[in-house]
Design a protein around this nucleic acid. Structure first.
Lengths: 215, 215
DNA sequence: ACGTCACGACACGGTACGTTCCGTTTCTGC
DNA sequence: GCAGAAACGGAACGTACCGTGTCGTGACGT
């Protein structure tokens, strides 16, 4: 276990102060310039207390991150696969591009390369569930005939998330909602799905005027 | 400029020894555990010499990286867009997953989040050219009628590279060549391109036997 | 009321940072 | 060639942060 264990005697006040301070500093200075000593000072907490409950700076920020997002991005099912995928991907874009969680996530992704335990925790607590939720929603659309039976769903999920991560790690501007809509259309089309209403042949080739369902 | 400037008096021997030592250490210990002092010791070079020519550990590895890959992955044009995209993406997968350049690139991507100059250098020297080459090859295919006229080419490039980065940063196993082939088929299909020979409806839905053109 | 445990504080040795000084080697220009 | 300049290796420096250890205090559970 990389995140903190609970205890009857543990001070919830110190825990929250630590997580909040870590997120603040990450936003202000960037993950790489955040130190445990600075977190402790900002939180009004002893360094010893931080090390008592977390194994590293990365573990603190992962807990802060997961803490804020557990159940915060449920996968709604409106019956419209394109709409639901847009909602899902837009939440992922916002997650990875908005303070304080965007900078924190960038740091976590960095640390994953050297910290095997952190990598495993991220996979189990963040990536795995999100990937599974997206794939499950596509499977449901399959049952409803909106996606062909033999479609390669895991590949579709990677094609959806891939561009989001691509821009995030390369520090390019995040996708806006129109771009996400175009992406979703392309991915569904690549699976052989029937065009979705007015979004017909060559989705995205001709920009559509902004419509209410995007906001 | 983040990478080293040339000089008439500069010792090429020290430069090469530094770059080689940095790549070696990065492979052995992972970028995060590589120190400038260790690079200097391994290279038989003074720390001062490293700081004279590079601004940071990241700059050293970026130069080693670019040095090895400048012109090393030309974008061939066989006239078959699907084949050429497979070749291109396969080289990107290999680049990001094979020592010593895979670990080095992971470290560079990490450092980019805190080092603006490094981020700009990566964009200009690595990502930009590769992205442009892929888009140019697609544009040529467009002229030849293999890709529809109004297709969203930048989106297509992101859909191709995205999954590669997705797996790289999340430390998932890299795509094998069959998966890359399926990905390329899907992306071309999403653009409205005509199915490519036997790769017909629902590419990837039914695994094809391995064929020579993949190796 | 007593014992336990988490707490804040402070000090510690260790590591790597980036810089400075020094004496030596190597190359350039005269 | 020779003299000067520049880059070199080596060693040491002060600083920052690491992760740990110690200690006295105070809050909680029994």
């Amino acid at each position: 276990m990389i995140t903190s264990q609970s205890s009857l005697r543990r001070s919830e006040r110190s825990r929250r102060a630590t997580l909040d301070a870590a997120l603040e500093l990450c936003t202000e200075k960037g993950y790489g310039r955040v130190t445990v000593e600075a977190i402790a000072a900002r939180a009004g907490v002893s360094k010893k207390t931080i090390y008592r409950w977390w194994s590293s700076k990365g573990a603190v920020l992962l807990e802060a991150f997961v803490d804020a997002f557990v159940g915060a991005t449920p996968f709604v099912d409106t019956g419209d696969i394109a709409l639901d995928l847009r909602t899902h991907i837009n939440s992922a874009v916002k997650l990875t591009s908005t303070p304080p969680y965007g900078p924190a996530y960038a740091g976590i992704l960095s640390e994953m390369h050297y910290d095997d335990a952190l990598a495993e925790a991220v996979q189990e607590q963040l990536v795995g569930p999100r990937f599974a939720a997206a794939e499950a929603r596509l499977a449901k659309a399959q049952e409803q005939g909106q996606v062909p039976a033999g479609a390669n769903l895991p590949l579709a999920v990677e094609m959806l998330y891939g561009p989001v991560y691509y821009r995030h790690v390369l520090r390019k501007p995040p996708q806006d909602e129109a771009t996400v809509a175009t992406l979703v259309d392309h991915v569904l089309r690549s699976l052989g799905a029937a065009p979705d209403g007015p979004r017909g042949a060559l989705p995205g080739a001709v920009p559509r005027p902004a419509s209410g369902d995007l906001s």
